[in-house]
């Protein structure tokens, strides 16, 4: 449904996107994940024809963003980071205007407005002036605006920013409900959101795509190197050295020193090998007390941090 090929973008002398390529299948929800100023918004603006790429191109719903810009726009609903509302208009007349320029037939406009207002729960503020709405409501009007022509492709730039927890859950549910019928790209820098709403994630950092895959997949990739946490009662350094000598152990570090004569260790394995029983045996042989041994799961936060803070992972390592 969406296919971006080698998109690069420069602002002045500063390159903000480096040859980005990706595909989104029909009915899929794709998450753009990355720190602020990573290039998420720029990528979205290029897909929605607001900006032109310096190199590369993309097709959206079968239309080329450079050659068939108007057709692309007809098939896209876009919600920018700050909702593009006219502060002096009422919600109702604003949506009428948007419906109009999106090319909805006159007779269908009232029906469509009712439908999106219902969907985004703004029916009760339809006569309020947009400029007087709270941030949360503006955000929802922005979402309503993107949905009004029922476009096959939706591009939402941080749709949950500025909402309260209840509203965030509502909007996430709404986005999830769009899958299947609509193809959606959502950008966010909030990690749990990606896990909850997206089927696939692209992590962007400094204009590069640093990783892509399903959230589970990404977790797995880094987890190839397993980490274990152990709590052992015994002489710290001695235990550490003994653990280090177990075959398959890559690294051992003492996490927390002496807690009632007991130390916490983080053991990293070299390859995915079951070394738990070997570790247990060493501990038992030395008559140390084993209080805890568990595998540490890699959270999406950790993956994100590792990908975006310069800690590199080569494919081989993974």
């Amino acid at each position: 449904m969406i296919s971006a090929k080698n998109i690069s973008k420069k602002f002045g002398g500063k390159q903000v996107l480096f040859s980005i390529s990706f595909d989104v299948n029909k009915g899929e929800i794709l998450g753009f994940l990355g720190p602020n100023a990573a290039g998420k918004t720029t990528a979205m603006r290029i897909l929605t024809c607001f900006l032109l790429p310096n190199e590369g191109t993309a097709t959206v719903a079968g239309f080329d963003i450079l050659e068939q810009s108007i057709d692309v726009r007809r098939n896209i609903g876009y919600m920018p980071e700050s909702p593009p509302i006219y502060p002096e208009m009422s919600v109702q007349s604003y949506l009428e205007f948007v419906a109009w320029i999106k090319g909805i037939k006159m007779k269908d406009i009232p029906k469509r407005i009712d439908a999106v207002m219902e969907k985004t729960s703004i029916t009760h503020v339809r006569d309020r002036i947009c400029g007087r709405l709270s941030k949360g409501y503006r955000q929802r009007v922005g979402l309503a605006q993107a949905l009004i022509h029922n476009p096959p492709v939706l591009i939402l730039d941080e749709p949950t920013s500025g909402l309260d927890p209840k509203q965030i859950i509502e909007v996430r549910e709404l986005i999830k409900g769009l899958a299947g019928e609509h193809t959606v790209i959502v950008s966010t820098h909030i990690l749990p959101e990606v896990k909850l709403t997206c089927e696939r994630v692209i992590i962007i950092n400094n204009g590069w795509i640093v990783a892509q895959g399903t959230p589970e997949n990404l977790t797995q990739k880094i987890k190839g190197k397993e980490r274990l946490q152990l709590e052992i009662g015994g002489p710290g350094e001695e235990v550490k050295n003994a653990l280090r000598n177990v075959p398959g152990v890559a690294n051992v570090q003492i996490e927390i020193h002496e807690l009632d004569g007991c130390f916490k260790y983080i053991v990293e394995t070299e390859v995915k090998a079951d070394i738990k029983k070997n570790l247990a045996r060493i501990i038992a042989d030395n008559k140390w007390d084993l209080y805890e041994m568990r595998t540490l799961g890699m959270t999406l936060e950790e993956i994100f941090m590792r990908y975006t803070t310069g800690e590199t992972f080569t494919e081989k390592e993974a």
Binding site: F50, R73, P80, Y86, V98, I101, Q145
Partner: peptide, 14 residues
């Protein structure tokens, strides 16, 4: 200023 230009430019309006 209001960034509503983003709405116009991403709508099927020449």
């Amino acid at each position: 200023k209001m960034m509503t230009i983003e709405l116009l430019f991403t709508s099927p309006v020449t």
